[in-house]
Each structure stands twice: as structure tokens, then as C-alpha cells.
């Protein structure tokens, strides 16, 4: 009689409703998130060093990514300045030059044109080169008038086709386009992208190793606890949870430090970079991380920390068997 009553009561306790199980699961997540944060804070120096190692591994690829982002902006600006210059025959006077310009402006594939008369060309020449006296001594203006053409399509191949067409227009003597260095810059940017991607993968692995090693030690330190909870019915997920949170906290901390380093770094480099860009006649600023960039950095670093912990704990759980 008593026996049956007791077993019935025992059985009732094992039958948790889905709602209560879900709440219990959430509660454990919250408890482990807090507990693992407290454990990190209990050894502030060690935690900081781990996070710093993560931050350093993150800064290089993230910094490179930022500069490439800047280069992409520069690239867009260069696309804007992908222009052709059509030099007109020297015999053409100012009035006829205006007619040729209109003809060019009407050609297909031409976005806009700007006429530089022979006199304007000379003025610009004098200003840039500072050769006032030498030029003043020339008997006549030797420079031809020219038309600067902005193509509709800045793609190098299209520009080249357009250049050939324009060279056929009557009155045009020669067409110049400077595509080679544009091409070179594009290749350089592509190279940078690939190097950046390779570095990101490599340093991402570095973060996994740093977190993995730290978590491995933590697992080793709590071995007895893991054995005991396994003995009394903890699932692997339960055992893993605090370590995953530790890993995520390390990742987040590393990400925040990396964010700080990047912000400091771009402030520090801002002045020389824009001075350098200005010397090439371009306006280029190192872009900041921005909201999405910051979110990406922190998200990736947290995820990497979590993943590193997952790998380390899973490998060790397989080895830990209760005595």
C-alpha cells in the first residue's frame, strides 16, 4: 500500500510539463551566463590577458578590412575621375573647337564633356609647372585645345572602345586615357582583399586556439565537478553550458578591446593618411567601423569565443569518465 503511494509520488516528480522545462532551461542559461562572468571577474588579470590576445588577433584582419573598405571608396572616386582627353588638331580655332565639343557630347557613351581651349590649357600649364617666363618667350601657343570626356560606363574595356570611336571624330587628333594605373590599383585592391581574407581565416583560427586553450584549463580545473554532475544525471549540454558562456564572454571582451584598439588606431593614422591622399589629389579618410561594422566585429568575436569553447569542451568531455 505505502509502496504504491510512494512510487506514484516519485513518478509525478519526474514528469515536468514542457512549460516548466522550458523555464528551467532558460533559468539555467541565465544562471550560467552570470556564473561564468563572475568566474572571469574573479581572475581579472588572467581574463584580461586572454581577451587581449584575442583582441590582437582580431585587430590585424579587421584593420586591413577597414583600409580595403577605404580603398573601395577611393576606387569609386577614381571611377568618377575615369576620363578621356581628346586633343584637337592644332589648326582648329576656338569657335570650331566648340563645335567639335558638341559633336563629342552628342556621341553615344559620353556622359559629359568639358572644353579646355588652347589659352586655358596654357594657363593651367603655367600654373602647374611654374614655367611662366620660358613659356612667355614662345612665339605662339603650341598647345592644342582639348575636350575632357566623362564616359557613361567607367569600365576600362568600355572606355577603351569609346576612345577608339572618339579618335574617328573629325577634328580630333589624339585620344589619351590613363587606364593602366587604374587597372593596377584594381589588381592591388583585389590582392588586398585576398590577403585580408586569408589573414582573417588564420587569425580566426588563432582566436579559436586562444579560447580553446583557456577553456581546456578551466575544464581541467573543474574536472571533479563535471564528474559529479555527470554521475547524477547531467546532460552534455548542461555540462558544456558554463564553458560556452565563458568562451562567449572572452570573445566579447576581446572584441570590445579590438574595437577600442581600432578606434584609437584610426584616429592616430587619420592625419597622415589624409595628408598622403591629398598629395595625390584625392580626398581619402580612413572610414570608422560604423554601427554595422562594430556589430559585426563583436558578433564575430563572440561567436569565435563560443566556438572555441565548444570545441575544447567537447574534446574533453569525451575523455572525462566518472570514476
Amino acid at each position: 500500500m505505502t509502496r504504491d503511494a510512494t512510487t506514484a509520488r516519485g513518478a509525478r516528480h519526474h514528469r515536468a510539463t514542457p512549460g516548466s522545462r522550458w523555464r528551467g532551461w532558460l533559468r539555467h542559461h541565465r544562471a550560467m551566463a552570470l556564473d561564468s562572468a563572475r568566474r572571469l571577474l574573479r581572475h581579472p588579470l588572467g581574463s584580461l590577458l586572454t581577451m587581449l590576445a584575442i583582441a590582437i588577433a582580431l585587430v590585424l584582419p579587421a584593420g586591413l578590412w577597414l583600409s580595403l573598405d577605404g580603398a573601395r571608396l577611393l576606387d569609386a572616386e577614381l571611377d568618377e575621375s575615369a576620363t578621356l582627353t581628346a586633343y584637337l588638331e592644332t589648326r582648329i580655332d576656338a569657335a570650331e573647337a566648340g563645335r567639335v565639343e558638341q559633336a563629342l557630347a552628342a556621341s553615344p557613351g559620353v556622359a559629359s564633356t568639358r572644353l579646355i581651349t588652347a589659352a586655358e590649357g596654357m594657363a593651367e600649364f603655367q600654373q602647374v609647372l611654374g614655367l611662366d617666363e620660358a613659356l612667355a618667350r614662345l612665339p605662339a601657343n603650341p598647345l592644342p585645345a582639348s575636350v575632357v570626356i566623362r564616359p557613361e560606363d567607367p569600365d576600362p574595356a568600355a572606355v577603351e572602345v569609346l576612345a577608339r570611336e572618339i579618335a574617328e571624330v573629325p577634328g580630333v587628333d589624339e585620344v589619351r586615357l590613363d587606364l593602366a594605373w587604374l587597372e593596377r590599383l584594381r589588381h592591388l585592391a583585389e590582392l588586398g582583399h585576398r590577403v585580408g581574407l586569408g589573414l582573417a581565416v588564420l587569425f580566426g583560427l588563432g582566436v579559436l586556439l586562444v579560447v580553446g586553450n583557456t577553456i581546456r584549463l578551466a575544464v581541467e580545473n573543474r574536472r571533479q565537478e563535471i564528474e559529479v554532475v555527470t554521475l547524477i544525471g547531467a546532460t552534455h549540454a548542461f555540462v558544456r553550458r558554463p564553458f560556452l558562456y565563458s568562451g562567449a564572454w572572452y570573445g566579447l571582451g576581446g572584441g570590445l578591446l579590438a574595437w577600442g584598439l581600432l578606434t584609437l588606431g584610426s584616429d592616430w593614422l587619420a592625419a597622415p593618411v589624409s595628408a598622403l591622399a591629398a598629395s595625390y589629389g584625392a580626398s581619402f579618410r580612413l572610414p570608422g567601423l560604423g554601427l554595422t561594422g562594430s556589430a559585426m566585429l563583436l558578433g564575430c568575436s563572440t561567436l569565435l569565443g563560443w566556438l572555441g569553447a565548444w570545441i575544447a569542451v567537447s574534446r574533453h568531455l569525451a575523455q572525462i569518465r566518472p570514476r
Partner: peptide, 23 residues
């Protein structure tokens, strides 16, 4: 097989914590 870094109360509560029993 007690856990020496937590109180008697929390040692005894461990199986319930594992099951997610309401506090």
C-alpha cells in the same frame, strides 16, 4: 563526491538544478 566550492544547500540542490526544478 561533494562540490567543495559551494554551500551544503547548493550541493543538495544540484540534482534539482540539473533537472531545472522551479527554485
Amino acid at each position: 563526491q561533494l562540490l567543495y566550492d559551494r554551500s551544503i544547500y547548493h550541493n543538495v540542490a544540484l540534482p534539482l538544478e540539473i533537472q531545472g526544478t522551479e527554485p
